[in-house]
Design a protein around this nucleic acid. Structure first.
Lengths: 195, 195
DNA sequence: TATGTGTGTAAGTAGCTACTTGCATACAGT
DNA sequence: ACTGTATGCAAGTAGCTACTTACACACATA
């Protein structure tokens, strides 16, 4: 791992803990085990460094796929949702900082929002596919269901450590319950096994 | 409105736009139309001022009530949810900043989280009440439904301007649709009117 | 008229910030 | 052995930050 990557990784870490103004070049240099001057030699300015660090981090590929043709909606949605929740939870500090910087640094948000937008679209198509393949006769808007599930997962991933008293317990059962309620809400019957 | 309140109001405004580190005493003084020294005479330090400002703002009473005994779940939940969404939306900048400051200033979060926690509990009791009064026979966890609705509303309030392409449209129909899907998901039949 | 209270003004302090410059050094390729 | 490249190090600059001190003034009350 060369110097440039070390600096980028350190910048992401420091930014996700301290935000933009709190990410001093001194702190980033220390975290990267590098001289402060080296940062300016590589990136020219703090702004340029942090912008590149955040963009790089928010373009990591992700993610579990949902099948084009649904087979077992409950199982498929559950494992997809758990993967998304874990991913959001791992990046929760960075996401919070990006959201906090919205007014002052909107270009960071343009990067950070792309993952959730793509996830919502993936979900939306899946719900359309569910109707097309006869899993439901309901005429509910697939975007409504997609937004609800994304919102719920996001809320759980970001908020559980902040306010555990307002979250269903245990954590491991939460996502399956979300999915079950949602599928019933759009009129998809359960596949087999009781209860 | 006396000097002290002017300063507090200005502090809230500036903080919700610039966050903690961006809320310089100079900026707050300008926004309050007051000399910078006056701030220190009243509050002693920037930390003390911002802590008081945020606490004051997060203890505003709120909010529409949900009835103890449900009459028309769909109507009651819809208007309650719309009120909460509007409230969250009005404070979205402040909320984002508080969330962003979580790691460095947890005491701010202790204030800011109380409103959503209370709202979730209100919802949770309402869903229990729905079952107790025979609106549903489902055995779903009321906390699951409460968290889903709160998460969905929160996501809509905070995220719609950020990523409108991932939200159901029009905005005015969104909350009624969320509520309808959720009620169906927990087995509450619609009251009367078709469609 | 005298006095206290609230506020503004001017100036200053110590520390931190992003960023620059100049030089030393270590190491790789030729 | 020579040279370029990557990095560290020491020092410095200009600007901002929270916060302090000392003084002036305006106004209300006694």
């Amino acid at each position: 791992m060369d110097t440039r990557d070390q600096i980028l990784a350190a910048a992401t870490t420091v930014f996700s803990q301290h935000g933009f103004r709190g990410s001093t070049t001194r702190r980033i240099a220390d975290a990267a085990g590098v001289n402060e001057v080296t940062i300016f030699r590589y990136f020219g300015s703090k702004d340029a460094l942090l912008e590149e660090a955040v963009r790089l981090d928010s373009t990591t590929p992700l993610s579990g796929l949902l099948p084009e043709v649904p087979q077992d909606p409950e199982a498929e949605l559950t494992s997809w949702s758990e993967a998304i929740r874990d991913h959001l939870h791992a990046k929760r500090s960075l996401i919070r900082k990006c959201m906090g910087e919205l007014e002052e640094r909107p270009e960071m948000m343009l990067c950070a929002k792309q993952a959730p937008v793509r996830s919502t679209n993936t979900l939306c198509k899946y719900f359309e596919s569910l109707r097309k393949h006869g899993f439901t006769q309901d005429e509910s808007d697939p975007m409504v269901a997609a937004t609800m599930l994304m919102g719920t997962i996001f809320h759980d991933a970001m908020g559980r450590e902040m306010m555990p008293e307002a979250m269903p317990k245990p954590q491991s059962k939460a996502v399956p319950q979300y999915v079950r309620l949602l599928l019933k809400g759009i009129g998809v019957k359960r596949k087999s096994h009781t209860q």
